[in-house]
Design a protein around this nucleic acid. Structure first.
Length: 950
RNA sequence: GCGGGUGUGGUGAAAUUGGUAGACACGCUAGAUUUAGGAUCUAGUGCUUCACGGCGUGGGGGUUCGAGUCCCUUCACCCGCACCA
């Protein structure tokens, strides 16, 4: 340690957290104490936090919760002799910076940089042990170069179902040239039809390219998308909550657009199976399972009467096929146009228009209203050849299954209600069940009836039998369907990764690795162009010169050698889908992460972050991982062995109450019963812990309160409280800076952990913070009393050793189980007991300081230095628990014989240093249970039940 | 509707395989000491009763020598998905 002079700086003998924290933060930064090496004899451990989006509001007290927990664990693992990788970075592309840019004209890069600076400053003051030499930012060209490269790889691969992995497009082309697509078993668009090798060869290059797009894992297609007009962009399914946009809560409608998509559906089964191998929270895995939505059933083809086409449906109940009395198609389906009969056309057109006009939210809100129209056409039942009318109805979703259902009103409540609404017959095919009032949906408990060869069979046999029959007839087959839909990858935004593609003859052409990064161009305006093109349409230099292989001005576009570049950018989840590998080798300019580095770190051992990313980032990143694994670029199929969701810290909003139509505000406890008041949010920082409002400050805060009249009760104005998500707009954000200033980072760290279990959501409340702060002061007083250094070298007593080893055991166990709140309790008990005993023995206090180190690192380092140590505390091994110190005296113990509890008896226990124990029963009642026998085994757990086995 | 989770003092919460419920902390009460940078120390604090005692982990029932913990049932709240064929 080279700061021997600095202890002179700290003159004060009390716990001077300000100077201590400043000193050690400077020391860690200067010495790069937490820099991880890619070469080490030690075992590795990779602890990852979900990197933050650097928003303009700065860090609030909720952000650090996960970071503190992971930091405690990282420091603990270092003490245990691991080579720990604990990096941090920024997810720095995103919508808020762009919207701010639209409003102010400032370049998003500039505001992002400012926000990052502020985040960094706030993170530093909390004493995190991040290895900042590996920082990544998704908006930096040397990072997004590799995001673009992965996109190109996805574009250049398809999913082969035979090998069950991604394969190069070149191998697909080779197959097409030999056999057409007849022998190809690949995931592709449903619109792809069979073709022979001759047909393939006779296609124009453009036709071939077009066809290949139907197979590529990153592909361009005309798709129905979620369009958010207010944001001016397309949204993915996980970006829509309750039918409105996640950001801003704007309405979302369906719209057809040419979009880049990711064929994540190809990985549906592997994404599902992979969940069984990883230690993630069960609720989160369940969310992903639901999102993937696997269902087993059959597809059935129904021949359209007087038409060469068939309607394909997916059903989980093919056993009810004889109960079909109509078909329903989603109104958006193209097929609807083809089959609508002239006499029904008018009604059908009107209905389609009506559904398109409604937003997704309206459609969702309106599930009670049953609507639909008959198309005038019929299909023929595959077994009975009966004519079955084809309807359209918006209860059928275009993007699930095939967008068509075989309606079995007796077995499905929705079909039942539709049939009732439009007077379509309901055929009962269940024995001994009434369908007078509702459909019978329970598949396990009855026998099929009136169903030809299925009559008399139960669900399971009927399923098998009908699938066999369908396959034999060639009008259906058993199949598995997934709810997971391909992910739209285009965003009509400026502040995102440019997609490295240019357009030649309307077809996308990829750039090559050597051309990357394709830099985000400068634009004058961040809004869409007047023609409605994305913001990149404003860029004057946004054309690709294929001869000179560089970006040139748009005026040179000639469609011979200079072509327009893609105007869409990538979504927010692109960079976050692989950033954790970049940390392994963050400055590598030759590859996304060097082979050696990847081989050494391999995977994330512990990932910490919020559960709100369950169906977004945490699913997409698993998808990219599997893809890159298929390409043998990564060593494992799941990148995060263990994941912990930290609960959100909620805000406690404060409300004042205005009499409607007046400027009078009543104190919460002065509002008469039954009187309607208008609650208005006020800044929580203007309210003290007793819910009393600082009235003068409120008047200063916002003009609307300047002339307000506050009616007090008992001399104070009390506010109302409500727990909500912490957000700037709710004025309930509490900043960690003030706490650090007042109590110090060590107190803040410990208090956030002491608040409760890490996974639990909890409202922020500083009421108990003094308890933790007092603990640290108490701890300090074990070393200093006024002016005096109290620590001595004398042998500790057995009692003191027992206290220490109980604490070592508890802390070690609890850290491993992420039970940090009970860890802190354990430390508090230990310090209380040592204080009572007036223990100042170095042999006790030295290991205790190590135990404290993950939680209050600044204080621990300071004490460690004052104890005369020459090494950083972070390089010292954690103390080891020794059972033998837990010696017990004579005491009353609950005793059980052969596992059955009998009595509480007085025992004296003797334990040697290894913890081998012997007990003597000092009670006459024992003899009747002993019955003259000698016990074979005594199972003795200190402070617990004594088990005697004969 | 489906899936997941949670219910313990005035508050945040503890309680390894069923084994002394409420550790630890906040708050509160009383006292001591000193009194102004939010200080420190001691005692008390689940409810009820003057007390002996009785009752207590959302409610009801069960298994067990013994249940916060296991089983059944019911209620309340939170989160996710939601016309998924």
């Amino acid at each position: 340690m080279c700061l021997s002079t600095s202890s002179n700086i700290i003159k004060q003998v009390g716990y001077d957290f300000k100077n201590i924290e400043k000193k050690w933060q400077a020391y860690w930064a200067k010495n790069q104490t937490f820099k991880a090496s890619n070469h080490s004899e030690k075992p590795k451990f990779y602890i990852l936090d979900m990197f933050p989006y650097p928003s303009g509001a700065g860090l609030h007290v909720g952000h650090p919760l996960g970071y503190i927990a992971s930091d405690i664990y990282a420091r603990f693992k270092r003490h245990q002799g691991f080579n720990v990788l604990h990096p941090q970075g920024y997810d720095s592309f995103g919508l808020p910076a762009e919207q701010y840019a639209i409003q102010t004209g400032q370049h998003p890069a500039k505001t992002t940089q400012e926000n990052i600076d502020r985040y960094r400053q706030q993170l530093d003051q909390m004493g995190f042990s991040f290895d900042w030499s590996r920082e990544v930012r998704t908006s930096e060209p040397d990072f997004y170069k590799w995001t673009q490269w992965i996109f190109l790889l996805l574009f250049d691969h398809y999913y082969c179902k035979n090998t069950d992995k991604a394969q190069p497009i070149s191998s697909l082309i080779a197959l097409f040239e030999k056999h057409g697509n007849n022998k190809v078993n690949a995931v592709c668009d449903s619109s792809v039809e069979h073709f022979s090798a001759e047909q393939w060869r006779s296609m124009t290059s453009q036709q071939q390219q077009h066809l290949l797009l139907s197979y590529r894992l990153a592909y361009l297609s005309e798709t129905e998308v979620n369009w958010c007009a207010d944001l001016g962009t397309v949204l993915a399914n996980d970006e829509i909550i309750n039918g409105v946009s996640e950001r801003g809560g704007y309405p979302v409608t369906k719209k057809k657009m040419k979009q880049w998509s990711m064929r994540i559906g190809a990985y549906a089964e592997r994404l599902l199976q992979g969940l069984n191998q990883i230690d993630w929270p069960e609720s989160l895995k369940e969310m992903q399972r639901n999102w993937i939505g696997k269902s087993i059933g059959a597809k059935v083809f129904f021949q359209i009467e007087g038409h060469n086409k068939k309607i394909e449906v997916f059903t989980t109940r093919p056993d009810t096929i004889f109960g079909v009395t109509f078909m329903t198609l989603a109104p958006e389906l193209d097929l609807v146009q083809e089959i609508t009969q002239p006499e029904q056309r008018k009604a059908v057109e009107a209905y389609i228009q009506e559904t398109q006009k409604r937003t997704q939210r309206e459609r969702m809100a309106d599930v009670k209203n049953i609507t639909g129209v008959f198309t005038g056409s019929y299909v023929l039942h595959p077994f009975t050849q009966e004519r079955i009318p084809i309807w359209i109805g918006d209860y059928v979703l275009a993007d699930y299954g095939t967008g068509a259902v075989m309606a079995v009103p007796c077995g499905d409540q929705r079909d039942y209600e539709f049939a009732k609404e439009f007077n379509i017959p309901i055929k009962n095919i269940f024995q001994g069940v009434s369908v007078e009032k509702e459909a019978f949906e329970d598949k396990g408990s009855t026998i099929i009836d009136h169903s030809d060869f299925l009559t008399g069979l139960a669900y399971k046999e009927a399923m098998q039998s009908v699938i066999q029959a369908l396959e034999k007839k060639g009008c259906g087959e058993g199949t598995t369907n997934y709810r997971l839909r391909d992910a739209i990858f285009s965003r009509q935004r400026y502040w995102g990764e440019p997609i490295p593609m240019y357009y030649k003859d309307q077809l996308p052409q990829p750039l090559e690795l050597k051309h990357l990064p394709l830099h985000l161009p400068e634009v004058e305006k961040y809004l869409p162009t007047p023609e409605g093109a994305p913001p990149l349409g404003n860029a004057p230099y946004w054309a690709w010169d294929t001869v000179n292989e560089k970006v040139v001005e748009n005026s040179r576009i000639d469609n011979k050698s200079v072509f327009p570049l893609e105007l869409n950018t990538m979504p927010g989840w692109a960079g976050s889908s692989w950033y954790f590998y970049r940390y392994m080798d963050a400055s590598n300019s030759d590859t996304f992460a060097g082979k050696e580095a990847v081989k050494y770190w391999k995977e994330v051992d512990l990932y910490l972050g919020g559960s709100e990313h369950a169906t977004g980032h945490l699913l997409y990143s698993r998808f990219w991982q599997k893809f890159l694994y298929d390409l043998e670029l990564l060593p494992v199929e799941e990148y995060a062995k263990k994941l912990i969701n930290q609960g959100m810290i909620l805000g406690t909003s404060a409300f004042v109450y205005r009499k409607p139509g007046t400027q009078t505000f009543l104190s919460k406890d002065a509002i008469p019963e039954g009187v309607q008041m208008e609650p208005i949010r006020v800044d929580v920082n203007l309210v003290n812990s007793a819910d009393e409002l600082d009235i003068e400050a409120v008047k200063q805060w916002q003009p609307q309160f300047q002339n307000a009249d506050f009616e007090l009760k008992n001399g104070v104005y009390k506010v109302g409280r409500e727990v909500e998500k912490m957000s700037k707009s709710k004025y309930n954000v509490v900043n960690p800076d003030a706490i650090c200033e007042q109590y110090g980072a060590d107190t803040l760290r410990m208090y956030e952990m002491f608040l409760g279990p890490i996974e639990q959501a909890k409202p922020w409340n500083t009421a108990g913070i003094s308890g933790v702060h007092n603990f640290l002061k108490k701890y300090w007083r074990l070393f200093y009393d006024d002016q005096e250094w109290l620590v001595h070298e004398q042998q500790p007593s057995n009692k003191e050793l027992k206290i220490l080893h109980e604490t070592i055991k508890k802390i070690t166990f609890d850290i491993e189980h992420f039970s940090f709140n009970t860890c802190i309790s354990g430390l508090m008990i230990c310090v209380n007991e040592l204080t009572t005993l007036k223990c100042h023995s170095k042999a006790i206090l030295s290991p205790l300081t190590l135990l404290l180190s993950p939680f209050a690192p600044h204080l621990a380092e300071e004490i460690w230095e004052r104890l005369g140590n020459k090494t950083d505390i972070s390089r010292v091994e954690f103390p080891v628990f020794e059972e033998g110190y837990l010696v017990e005296d004579t005491k009353n113990y609950p005793v059980s014989f052969n596992g059955k509890m009998r009595f509480t008896l007085e025992l004296s226990l003797q334990l040697d240093q290894k913890g081998i124990q012997e007990a003597v029963l000092n009670d006459t009642r024992t003899s009747e249970y002993l019955e003259g026998k000698t016990p074979k085994k005594w199972i003795i757990v200190p402070n617990k039940i004594i088990n005697i086995v004969f």
